[in-house]
Simulated assay, not measured.
Amino acid sequence: MEPILKVDNINVYYGSIHAIKGVSFEVNQGEIVTLIGANGAGKSTTLNTVAGLLHSKTGSITFLGENLGHLPCHKTVSKGLALVPEGRRVFLQMSVQENLEMGAYTKPGSGVAADLEHVYELFPRLKERMRQTAGTLSGGEQQMLAMGRALMSHPKLLMLDEPSMGLAPILVEQIFDIIRSLHKAGTTILLVEQNAQAALSVADRGYVLETGKVVTTGTGAELLASPIIKKAYLGG
């Protein structure tokens, strides 16, 4: 089966700093694939490159058989890629509903009401707060809003960058329950996450990044059971 996303030998620089060094990985239809690693390993940079926010000097990024090349970020959304960025980045002065409607800007207007209803079913808390300004929401609610906004574009691949960052343990659990239910409903997910234990427990497969390189790959279960991974990332 042809992977939905194939990243082949990308090299990304910040000025003279070589941040991503020959990274390759793939994501198949219906999978959750996670990139784990320490702070500064290159996880978010990799995700931002796939999303079109950064560009690679070499290699290729192929999505649904099409080479994304140097396609800008807003064009990748219309291709079916949606990124929930690190730090959530919701529109703080706008209402919950207005934020969600912004997520549907690539879609025809007729289906937006049904899409809103679907997001409100997934995130009942957002429905309760639909008229509230996003800046008054808690961190967990803002994370739900950022995920809901991305889902409004009907992504063929949902990319999540550190969805548990800064959240209380009970909210982390809720966010990962939502990731599981999205996966069960058929959403393909590429997950970047500092919380390796949580990420590997939901992932079909994982890639471990160290200083901009992929050093290990395996199924979520294999990586969870690996003594090296346990010692480095799981406090084992």
Rank of each mutant, 00 (worst) to 15 (best):
I4S: 04
E31P: 03
N9H: 13
K156T: 01
E66C: 02
M152F: 05
D204N: 14
G186H: 10
G166K: 05
G52K: 12
A203M: 04
K184C: 01
L157D: 00
G236I: 15
N99F: 08
T219D: 05
V12G: 06
N195R: 11
S95N: 08
I189A: 02
H118W: 13
G40H: 09
S44M: 11
N67P: 04
L5H: 06
H154K: 15
I4Y: 01
I32D: 00
G235L: 10
L5T: 07
L171Y: 00
I36L: 11
S44D: 06
P169V: 07
Q174I: 02
V77A: 14
G65M: 07
G139D: 03
G65R: 12
Q143M: 08
V12K: 14
S138T: 14
T106P: 03
T58R: 12
L167A: 02
L190Y: 07
P124F: 10
L71N: 05
E128M: 12
S201N: 14
Q29S: 14
Q194C: 03
D8T: 15
D177L: 06
L167M: 05
T106K: 06
H154I: 05
I179E: 01
M130F: 14
R180W: 00
P155W: 04
K213D: 06
A198N: 05
S44L: 05
G235W: 10
G103T: 10
I61G: 06
T216Q: 13
G30D: 08
A134C: 13
L68Q: 12
L81R: 05
I17C: 07
R129W: 07
T45Q: 13
L158T: 04
S78Y: 02
L151V: 09
L137A: 06
S56C: 05
S56D: 04
T219E: 04
A38S: 15
V112N: 09
H118S: 15
S181A: 11
F123E: 11
L145I: 00
